[in-house]
Design a protein around this nucleic acid. Structure first.
Lengths: 351, 351
DNA sequence: CTGAAAGCGCTTACAG
DNA sequence: CTGAAAGCGCTTACAG
């Protein structure tokens, strides 16, 4: 298991300081500081600046950001708190955040709560101690409003991806009601008359919204909706499978002909249960998911799903956080549109 | 629909300092510093400590980690440089890293290169400027040895997940040759006589290793291996599809009866191409992947794949980095075992 | 057990 | 255009 190899020790040179550079060129540290900062370089004679840059390069000088932040009050760091980095829907969000922050030379610190109680408060505390310039919370659940609100009083804070009404900070989300409505409307268009939802945990506020959006359109279009009593606490493949089993067990031959799973993983679980029961997709039961995760396009049949605009949400959230940091006090709530992707799991013509 | 919650405002004043706490209790800052540090609290009278803790709590004091790091020389931060956070195989690695670091109160800063040329060098530079305590490189490719070696001279550095022989730093990997060998051996056991590989880019050194391990066992077991001329530069679903199309185009009816895709995404691409050509899996062509990504278990048929021990690799890498930081100079190369997961995409009895 | 002083590596008014 | 000094918020020898 463990293969030890030969010990090749490498000599470690420890960081050169501003004073080292100053000494090398025979100037005062403050002059070197100016020469090295693009923003203040104009205060320095061009020739001096050349000498400083050359020396810094030669010595391998790297500014100590901790020392700098002590004076400037900025750390050039924004904390991103996610629920689960393993969830494919967060990756595009983080990419969007990183992309926007890169423009301003800011670096994201990402951490995750795993949706454990108390984890968010603990992480927020830690990030405040780190004096991050801003905080982006992707992991909020019902009940986290107080933690987020008090964070917002100490550091510019934005909620994103998971809505958290009442937290009193800016939010960037994609309207869950709309997403659920798109799916119900699509199923009605296909001629379904009996539908059901495999719902995510209700304390993650996206899910109740998706549910309400779906139900209200279903009702408006005259669809019969069977409501499952069962509640799950996560949205993994197993949860979707369990909900689907429960649905089949309680409805028997009178099962819905279409189900809306609140995310793609749950849809996958539902599909494998349906197959196991010998039911055809979409012939016997149509299945729709949510998020448009990377692999869903390549399943057989492809999964009908709502494309979640993660990159855009992340980008807008970072933008909001950075603007907040610059003193823009307009506390906006931003909504990004989502789109239904129709594939073979609901539409027989695409199978 | 905003559900207003009761406003339980938690009073948090912005940045109280050690001096503020000292003033509040009428003690010297140095005493407060001691009282607040669990490691030095024994130097302080118990009753004094109580008073300090109470005041700190009341004032909402949070130590400024930047200031602390200036004195201690530690930032309690380890940089993790990945190629692509969206790749499902990195998530368990990062979880493993975070889990180990959490024990020591250290926080990971993750960044990604997107496998862009020059990105690794740039990020390493940035992380050195941030004075991270250690560096874990998951994104190394052939040619990155110099960058990693020189990083290793400035900061404790460990390579993980992607091997980088010649970089002169410790490494934690899972042997690619072994993984490829497991697959070839399995296919031979099933009675296949004609096989092929859908290879990942050769500058990511896992892939040539997987290829060699596979080929050498294939040869030893008397299998005929068709070698594709085509090279891909990434390992997405599309790449697997393109390679599979190419394979079918060049071999015609004499196509291999089993293919080994160097990761699961490529396997998925291959599978969708095979289905499109009306070929049954595994009846006409068996397909194996690599990584055991989350969804592969729930595909139909399930995907045979090598389980990549990402969490363990990450955990061991963080452990190595932290030990290096503590002055443990034994520069070890650690290997973690992997395991073949046999499912319906190769084994008809499991379909 | 507590205090006073020095210093970590920067930036930033203030002089010259 | 450059220098000298002060200070950001901590920790850590050194005294007492």
């Amino acid at each position: 298991m463990v293969t030890p190899t030969t010990d090749t020790r490498i000599p470690v040179r420890t960081g050169a300081t501003l004073a080292d550079v100053a000494e090398a060129v025979g100037l005062h540290p403050s002059t070197v500081s100016r020469a090295l900062d693009p923003g203040r370089a104009s205060m320095v004679k061009a020739e001096t600046r050349e000498r400083v840059l050359e020396a810094a390069e030669r010595i391998g000088y790297r500014p100590n950001l901790a020392a700098r932040s002590l004076m400037t009050g900025r750390t050039a760091t924004v904390a991103v708190i996610a629920a689960d980095l393993g969830n494919p829907w967060v990756t595009p969000i983080i990419h969007g955040i990183a992309s926007r922050m890169h423009d301003d030379g800011v670096v994201p610190i990402v951490a995750e709560t795993d949706d454990q109680p108390g984890a968010l408060a603990e992480l927020v505390d830690h990030m405040v101690a780190r004096r991050v310039d801003a905080l982006i919370v992707l992991a909020g659940r019902e009940g986290d409003q107080d933690v987020v609100r008090s964070a917002g009083q100490v550091v510019p804070t934005v909620v994103a991806a998971r809505p958290l009404p009442g937290a009193g900070v800016g939010a960037v989300i994609s309207d869950g009601k709309m997403g659920g409505a798109l799916v119900a409307s699509h199923l009605a268009d296909l001629g379904h008359t009996h539908v059901a939802q495999l719902r995510g945990p209700s304390n993650v506020l996206n899910f109740p919204l998706r549910s309400r959006g779906f139900s209200s359109v279903a009702k408006a279009r005259g669809l019969r909706e069977t409501h499952l009593e069962m509640e799950v606490t996560s949205t993994k493949v197993e949860d979707g499978a369990a909900l689907m089993e429960h649905l089949l067990a309680t409805t028997g031959d009178d099962h819905p002909t279409a189900v809306f799973a609140h995310n793609d993983s749950m849809a996958l679980g539902a599909i494998s249960v349906l197959k196991r029961h010998g039911l055809a997709i979409p012939g016997d039961v149509a299945v729709a998911g949510f998020n448009d995760s990377p692999m869903t396009e390549h399943l057989t049949p492809g999964l009908t799903t709502v494309h979640y605009p993660g990159w855009e949400v992340g980008h807008a959230a970072a933008d909001a956080a950075l603007r907040l940091l610059e003193g823009d006090i307009s506390l906006a709530s931003i909504e990004i549109d989502q789109e239904l992707i129709i594939r073979g799991s609901t539409d027989p013509t695409k199978a």
